[in-house]
Amino acid sequence: MIIMAEKYRAEIQSLNGDKLGIHPSGEADFTIDNDTLTVEITMNQTSPNTQHWMHFHGFPDGRDAKPATIAQDVNHDGYVDLPETEPVSGTTMVPFNDKPAEMNIPTDTYPVSDANGHFHYEKQVSLKDIQKKFKETFNDDELHLEKRVIYIHGIPESVDLPDTVQGSVMHYDPHTTLPIATGKIEKVD
């Protein structure tokens, strides 16, 4: 019996672009083939020469996550910051850095965009390893990619943000965690 690979894709669109003057876009592809999860993310028009934290977000209880929009700007400062995404998108789950299966969010191993705001990320991960860590953290060994959203974060520290823009509950700087793009992960037939 031949088992076909499962494929998922997210079309990633700008969030906070009007306030930041950048309009990132790109795509994320996820392929599960036997025990390998391959993640490939290509982004354009992000902040140049900037490290971009990337993750999929979701709800540990299995609810379907949705990408945040300007409607989530509950304090009306013109920005949708990370805490404001949580009611519709859930919590940060899996990072796309040098070791996604370790699920260690705060690292300096995320991609850095080039002078044109472009970057490409590709990583193969043991599905068993990531499912084991996911179960330890979220009490579920299935990733449920079709119920997740992807976020691209990060702007240069030189950007002036109002004090109302929050980093996160983990007290990271809002320049690191401000979402600049998001997309819904969907199964590809």
Rank of each mutant, 00 (worst) to 15 (best):
D77R: 15
K184E: 11
H118W: 07
H153C: 02
D98G: 13
D173P: 03
V165Y: 02
G17A: 06
E27I: 00
I130F: 01
V188S: 07
I70Y: 10
D61L: 08
A10S: 03
V39N: 00
P60D: 10
H55V: 14
H153F: 01
K187R: 13
H55F: 15
I180E: 05
Q166K: 15
N49D: 13
L178W: 06
D77T: 08
Y151L: 05
I41A: 02
E86A: 15
T177C: 05
P67V: 14
H55G: 09
D189R: 03
I22G: 03
I3F: 13
E86S: 14
K19P: 06
N75C: 04
W53F: 14
D35W: 14
V188Y: 11
H120D: 06
D33N: 11
F134I: 08
K133M: 12
A28E: 01
K128G: 01
T164N: 06
G117I: 05
N139W: 03
L143G: 03
T164K: 11
A28R: 00
F59I: 10
R9E: 01
D64Q: 12
E157K: 14
D108L: 15
V159K: 12
Q72K: 13
N104W: 09
Y79L: 10
S47L: 05
D160F: 01
N49F: 13
S113Y: 01
V165I: 07
E102M: 14
T50D: 04
F138P: 04
D140R: 11
T42H: 07
K184M: 07
V39E: 00
E142N: 13
I152P: 00
I152A: 00
K133E: 07
H57C: 09
K123Q: 11
L145Y: 07
G62W: 12
K99R: 10
D64C: 12
P174R: 11
N16C: 05
D18Q: 13
R148G: 02
V74M: 13
Q131D: 01
L15S: 01
N104P: 03
E84D: 09
V165P: 00
W53T: 08
E11A: 02
D173I: 05
K123W: 03
A10K: 00
D129V: 11
P100S: 11
P24V: 03
G21F: 09
I22V: 13
E186A: 06
I105R: 08
N34I: 13
N34H: 15
L178R: 06
A115H: 06
D61C: 07
F56K: 02
H120A: 14
S113K: 02
G78R: 12
K66T: 08
N49G: 10
I130W: 01
V80W: 12
K99I: 14
D73E: 10
E6Q: 15
Y110N: 02
F138T: 04
S47R: 03
D33P: 02
N16G: 04
D98V: 12
Q45V: 04
F59G: 07
T38V: 10
H175I: 05
N75L: 05
H118G: 12
S168F: 05
V159F: 08
V169R: 10
F56A: 01
A71F: 08
M4G: 04
N44T: 12
P67K: 14
T182M: 15
E136C: 01
Q166M: 07
F96D: 04
T107M: 10
P67A: 12
T182N: 14
I22N: 04
T182A: 15
A71C: 05
Q13I: 01
Q13F: 02
L178M: 07
E84H: 10
T176S: 09
